[in-house]
């Protein structure tokens, strides 16, 4: 793709469009807005392919990082447009009990591991983690949103991510 081969863009799109869309929909929560963001993500990937290096992670991770960044930008713009009305989180209170279909088996395994790792977190830690990752809120904003002291938010976020990392490592070792 870095050499300007548009068929590589097509292959990247075929492989990752649904996964990118799932992340964007999860963050933006508006399918029409999400579609614009997804298209912009792939166009950005096409334009920046020459600058991609493996130290940015696997292509999928690179693409999803761009998708998250653009989605959070769009979410913030939507919030401003909606006069800072907070997004209704009730739909996402619980993670699905079983893995969700993604575009291939490896993705299924990844999704299943992540969901499993998230389910092992106490609810209050998972909540902070999801607000940080999927809504891009700062520690102060999370504290305000949840009505908690800033120190509590910091502790929960740090514990949550370390536990999640350890759980993912453990699952990887079990698979190996």
């Amino acid at each position: 793709m870095a050499g300007g081969d548009e068929s590589a863009l097509g292959a990247l799109y075929d492989r990752w469009a649904d996964a990118v869309n799932a992340l964007v929909v999860r963050i933006v929560r508006d399918e029409a807005e999400a579609e614009e963001v997804v298209e912009a993500v792939f166009w950005q990937a096409w334009q920046q392919a020459a600058r991609y290096t493996t130290d940015r992670g696997a292509p999928g991770a690179w693409l999803l990082a761009m998708a998250r960044s653009r989605s959070l930008d769009r979410l913030r713009a939507l919030r401003r447009r909606r006069d800072e009305q907070p997004v209704d989180d009730s739909v996402f209170d619980n993670q699905p009990a079983v893995g969700d279909p993604l575009s291939e088996l490896d993705a299924n395994e990844r999704a299943s591991r992540v969901v499993s790792a998230l389910q092992h977190l106490p609810d209050e830690q998972r909540e902070v983690l999801e607000l940080a990752y999927f809504e891009g809120l700062s520690q102060t904003e999370i504290a305000e949103r949840l009505g908690l002291p800033l120190g509590t938010v910091k502790t929960r976020a740090r514990l949550a991510l370390r536990k999640m990392r350890d759980r993912l490592d453990a699952l990887r070792e079990v698979e190996a």
Binding site: N21, P101, S103, L118, M164, R165, L168
Partner: peptide, 15 residues
Amino acid sequence: GASNALAHGVPAAPI
């Protein structure tokens, strides 16, 4: 890596 993995745990939403 753990933070980025969160992207894989979202409900599927095929276009």
